[in-house]
């Protein structure tokens, strides 16, 4: 009854067009989009925490002492390019070009790993310069937000490695286009979260200092009027 060699069994997930659904959208693809909608709230809440506590740390180091925008611009660029490699991998999977798929997947993995490398370097630098997780509000909110983003990227890297291995072992049609496509959705989502983080934490918040004169209300107004201007 039970197969001992299930990996050699037919594809685990039937290709999209074989599955009949009410809306015509594949179950797993719909699941991934619902998950991404849900994950928006996850990162939304983490970002909200950061924004609420922005500029409220009463001891240093403050972002302006420690954030290095040029380096992070480079790592942002790397992550963007990994998204490009990913979408090319999806295109290769759609065309059934297994060799190209594997190449693009590994390029994505390498670029993603470089991004993580930058993050590890940055975290370590911060630690050396005296910004530990428990130092101040900035460190707690910053490490939590970027750390969970990094965890998402790391998970994505593992996922893509699995796909690349599966693709290398199965010249005929595994992983399916849908498998790659769904992993790609996740990967791009992680990229767009970073677009938001890069803007808010680095480009805008990267120059924050200690609490400014005046109350949080003043800063709130400045923030809103800045948004409108």
């Amino acid at each position: 009854m039970a197969h001992a060699d299930t990996t050699h069994a037919p594809p685990a997930h039937p290709p999209a067009h074989e599955e009949e659904t009410t809306t015509g959208i594949n179950h797993r693809k719909l699941l991934m989009w619902v998950f991404l909608g849900s994950d928006c709230l996850f990162f939304g809440s983490l970002i909200a925490t950061y924004m609420v506590y922005r500029g409220q740390s009463i001891v240093g180091p403050y972002p302006r002492d420690i954030i290095d925008v040029p380096i992070t611009t480079v790592s942002t660029f790397v992550l963007l390019m990994s998204s490009f490699a990913m979408v090319m991998g999806v295109a290769a999977a759609r065309n059934g070009n297994q060799k190209r798929l594997i190449q693009w997947l590994w390029l994505t993995i390498v670029l993603g790993s470089i991004f993580i490398g930058f993050q590890v370097y940055e975290f370590n630098l911060f630690r050396v310069e005296g910004l530990r997780y428990e130092t101040n509000l900035f460190s707690s909110t910053f490490f939590t937000l970027t750390g969970f983003h990094g965890a998402h990227v790391t998970l994505g890297i593992f996922w893509l490695i699995c796909l690349a291995i599966v693709a290398a072992r199965n010249p005929a049609g595994r992983p399916s286009h849908l498998d790659v496509d769904i992993a790609g959705l996740y990967w791009h989502f992680v990229d767009i979260v970073w677009i938001v983080i890069f803007t808010l934490l680095y480009l805008i918040g990267g120059f924050d200092g200690p609490p400014e004169a005046g109350h949080a209300a003043v800063q709130g107004w400045n923030w809103v009027t800045g948004l409108i201007s």
Binding site: T49, Y53, Q56, S57, I58, V59, Y133, E134, N136, L137, S139, S140, T141, T144, P211
Partner: peptide, 10 residues
């Protein structure tokens, strides 16, 4: 030891 709800750290 984070500071999210730690009033001493703001």
């Amino acid at each position: 030891g984070a500071n999210f709800f730690n009033t001493a750290a703001g």
